[in-house]
Design a protein around this nucleic acid. Sequence first.
DNA 1: CACCCTTTTGAATCTGTCT
DNA 2: GAGACAGATTCAAAAGGGT
Lengths: 372, 372
Amino acid sequence: MIKDKIICGDAIEEMKKLPDDCVDLIFADPPYWMRVEGVLNRVEGTPYDGCDDPWDNQFETINDYNNFTRDWLSECKRILKPDGSIWVIGGMQCIYTIGAIMQELGFWFINDVIWYKRNPTPNFKGTRLNNSHETLIWATKSEKARYTFNYKTAKELNTDTVEEEKFKKGVRKQLGSVWRIRVCKGSERIKKDDGQKLHTAQKPEELLYRIIAISSNIGDLVFDPFGGTMTTAAVAKRMGRHYLSIEKESEYCKYGERRLNGVTPIIGNIEKAVFDKKPLRASMKEMIAAGYFIVGETFYLKNFTEGGKLLSDGKLLYDGKIVDIHRCAALAKGSKASRLNGFNTWYVLRDSRLVSINDIREKYRKFKLNNG
Amino acid sequence: MIKDKIICGDAIEEMKKLPDDCVDLIFADPPYWMRVEGVLNRVEGTPYDGCDDPWDNQFETINDYNNFTRDWLSECKRILKPDGSIWVIGGMQCIYTIGAIMQELGFWFINDVIWYKRNPTPNFKGTRLNNSHETLIWATKSEKARYTFNYKTAKELNTDTVEEEKFKKGVRKQLGSVWRIRVCKGSERIKKDDGQKLHTAQKPEELLYRIIAISSNIGDLVFDPFGGTMTTAAVAKRMGRHYLSIEKESEYCKYGERRLNGVTPIIGNIEKAVFDKKPLRASMKEMIAAGYFIVGETFYLKNFTEGGKLLSDGKLLYDGKIVDIHRCAALAKGSKASRLNGFNTWYVLRDSRLVSINDIREKYRKFKLNNG
DNA sequence: CACCCTTTTGAATCTGTCT
DNA sequence: GAGACAGATTCAAAAGGGT
């Protein structure tokens, strides 16, 4: 499989050369149909294509744009792995068409995400509200897909709803669907040799950083059909992912190669998604067999209330009934719920002191990790 | 024309009975088609009382939903005045379908607006990003529509990007497309006589307040095809607009009537959009005719420098040339500009003291307002 | 009345893996 | 594919109750 490459060519034609189910993550920033001027533009307004190209003429009507959208999305769906996911970004001119076609093609939406710009261009004319956001759609190929979502890593990155001071102290909240991110400006902006900016719609690296951190793992292949300034590829490489980007404009490809050559991977906890690593499975039954719990011993609540006697199958005898530790937790606490997390509820006596069964489980997991 | 009424019946059928081009503003909160199944438990185990409305889940396929959407939007387009506008709200499950169909029907998008919820329901299971927004589309029937947009009123209402303290001091910034508004909870929520909430998706009054303040004027007719708890009608009535709402559920209509009976109009500067009121036109010529200026009198700069003699057509004789007061201001101040604002430049003698001609114009405007 | 602590609740496509 | 079972999971705001 081709990877870590920029392909200079037409997105749809080049995608057709790729095999089925070959990429883990797609980020797409497609051209959009601006009906005001009848010119095909990127979000924020730069012309997408040279006007001498006959490819332009396909976009004379909204119907042509729909067909184009359906074509590239269909190819994306084909090359995306069953458990992979896709992000598409767009402004109000195109995102509704794109979203509707995605649903028509069977894509299943995980979230739509708002990029709420910290420093949008003001609307000088005062004829409408200042357009200060763009929309991203995050989706899978099907409802059943078990997509990568590094929930805790996302939480770790959440600067949107936690004030800066609290954030520094380590306070983290569940990440939401509105992301406050700066527009790409200053030194981040790729300049041509003549000092002019290469592209007016260059996406900020922070946006791609979040997307890749949240929805992919180290070593995954990140694909971008409309590579542009190669932000997707650059951030993917920096984060230890593989990349593959298609771009039609040879000038963008040239500067993109140069940009990618300057990127060195930096792999930290976020990149490795260590917060989301799943612990070893540890059933009560096997912990009893390993001697970490003793059949017949009493389980207590934190306040020393007796909560049941341990049976050999890992369940508890409580009030004459045999129930699992989670159900028993709900009963003992008088909860309306049928089950509560037993590991956060129960304590046992060790050296005359109460010890959380969760702590004991952690010890067992370390043992299991070291001893096969 | 029917107005200030709740119509109990099917939205599409009842709209068909209304004439063409009869409403100024539409707010539509259609069924979202959430596709929720089963019971969702909170972390503590209690069930979440979400959207179990059969009305929301009546659609079998995307095609059914598309057809329904196309039907009600078509009727909305027909009854909306040529210079009116429409707001439609939806979540990620439906807004892309809605937006695409609106564009297909020829609606012209002014803005899409994000309702960024201050207190969204968290994602209890950590399965995806916390869905903390809904999307509104604001559109007209055609590109040519001269829609109402109270720009300065919008700015006046902007609490989203100005910190509270500065806001209190009167600092205002251009209103953007992301609105930070609380979810409707607590005492604002309409309760049934048994104490249960009437409706699972009651919209906050603040949201409607902004919409109506920004995109309508006193006396306009505000229409809502899916009235629900009648928030649209209630806020419209409070703001001195006429209302017309359709609702299928007779229970909602009953409580809606009760709610509307309790509403008294409160008309302030926001409601009247005074910030956006254009001042009366007042030409020099008509002010001379009304005796506010005397032909032949001298116009002075603030420092008593003579700046020209007033002619009968309202122009000034300056340095042997006949020029208008704005051009003359530039000449007299030696400015590089060809024209400066003459009303801020010139003074005339009244009772031996210099008086700004702008103050005299204000007096004249007051007179004109009171005397036709 | 002020303050503090607890309880309630909001348009939600809301579990994963092994047998 | 169904069933068993292990394991992981929430935030802001307002209402209500007690001191």
